[in-house]
Design a protein around this nucleic acid. Structure first.
Length: 116
RNA sequence: CAAGCGGGCUGGACAGCCGCGUGGGAACGCCGAAAGGCCACCCAUGAGGAAAGUCCGGGCUCCGCAGGGCAGGGAUAACGGGUAACACCCGCCGGGGGCGACCUUAGGAAAAGUGCAACAGAGAUAUACCGCCGGACGCCUCGGCGUCCGGUAAGGGUGGAAAGGCGAGGUAAGAGCUCACCCGACGGCUGGGAACAGUCCGUCGCUGUAAACUCUAUCCCGGAGCAACACCGUGGAGGGACACACAGGCCGGCCCGGCCGUCCCGGGGAGGUGGCUUGAGCCUGUCGGCAACGGCAGGUCGAGAUAGAUGGCUGUCUUCAAGGACAGAACCCGGCUUACAGGCCCGCUUGCACA
RNA sequence: GCAGAAGUACCCAAGUGGCUAUAAGGGGCUCCCCUGCUAAGGGAGUAGGCGGGUAAAACCGUGCGGGGGUUCGAAUCCCCCCUUCUGCG
């Protein structure tokens, strides 16, 4: 992920949960908020409810891959948090990818057709 | 061939494109006055048999602590060995199960003491309810019946357990009362390194429970845990030194205006660096040993992350199935326990068939 | 990473070797009293897991998170798991 840094601090996550915009489906919950850094920051959360360590790792890797592949389509300059929900454990990669893009579209994080 | 028993191994492989962690190299690239740093790119390497549960045993680190004994607490429990150590492993003995290969076993002491044993039953650590037998008295239809006194643990029924078992003798009826055989305990003898076995001899016949207290033997003994601990450490709080003003510094090209003491010390919150992977290591051969394991020789280095690196897409092969076993290192080892699809190999047992 | 605690009817729970847990007792549910009507309060009664069985009962088996073991006998004692919760930093 070339233009994106990962989001680590707990207080940054909490600020997004409280003040950010969100979109939800059975697989994922996405929170976002504009920052002033000029680049985006991504945080991934996969809680214990999703499954044991192997399942959580797999979900997290798939989410990171989905974002990496489509990074160019995201508008820069946002803090984004992606929370995996219960159904994500059994989901295939294509389902997670589609879900991420749809929720990002709802939040207007994706560039329009004409934009570079 | 069928059914079964035991042990070991494996836990998909290969290729292409994009992507990640760590280590090394690195320009004709970037930053820098330089020293040097960064980096495209290249090379190497990158989760498990349980990484899990955290149930035991250690290493390591810090804090506490003069030495020894008793008391107290905890763990273990046939015996012999292995090991750094263990509650683990190997061998062996005893008990239980299986036709067998084999499996299983918290397996010291109840005869040091205390406690507990509901219900049932006459009676639960000592008993006479029914019964059996004898005697006295009474009744009598002369078969017996009743009351009282006494003997008796063979029979009945209860129970997890009823005073070793069974047969014969014996007796009024009975009883290890006596005898033979069997069972068990203790002592002697023989074999064995020991647990133990043999049953030749003698003595005895005792309920169970110690995963109730307890006793015996052996071992252990302070606390925390890598988020330990060590080092660096912007800011803020504290202390010291020097300044005390018409000075000085910052914002600004300058004026006006606004803001502000300066430097040092120390312990340390966030954050960073070390700890951090070479170790009771792994592989091969050989020797000793039934084995666990050990000795020797040679070879070899196989993750080190820190919101946490192995993912995505595609093809081929093995496969019923690869989209489908259980499952992710977090300081490191030795075990135990628990979870686990499929596949492969070795040894053995029983039955059937054939030669 | 480390250290603990708990699990019993629908819920809260008592029971810590013994007769069948009448599954103690609450809450619950039904009826009555109280009130103009409610709430609160008081009194009486009642069913109560799962499987079988019955017209309904009676009755039988099983059941105290699960599985083993000790014991004549286990919710209770011992061992191994599962789930939930809490604490430390």
């Amino acid at each position: 992920m070339k233009q994106t840094v990962s989001l680590k601090l707990n207080r940054e996550f909490r600020r997004l949960y409280q003040k950010g915009k969100s979109a939800v489906d059975p697989f994922l919950a996405v929170y976002c908020r504009k920052n002033r850094l000029g680049f985006s920051r991504l945080g991934l959360t996969v809680g214990t409810k999703v499954g044991h360590a192997v399942v959580r790792n797999r979900v997290r890797r798939r989410l990171r891959e989905s974002y990496r592949v489509h990074e160019d389509r995201f508008r820069p300059g946002y803090d984004i948090v992606v929370v995996a929900r219960g159904r994500a454990a059994g989901a295939r990669y294509a389902q997670l990818e589609r879900s991420l893009l749809r929720l990002a579209g709802k939040l207007d994080l994706l560039k329009g057709e004409g934009e570079g």
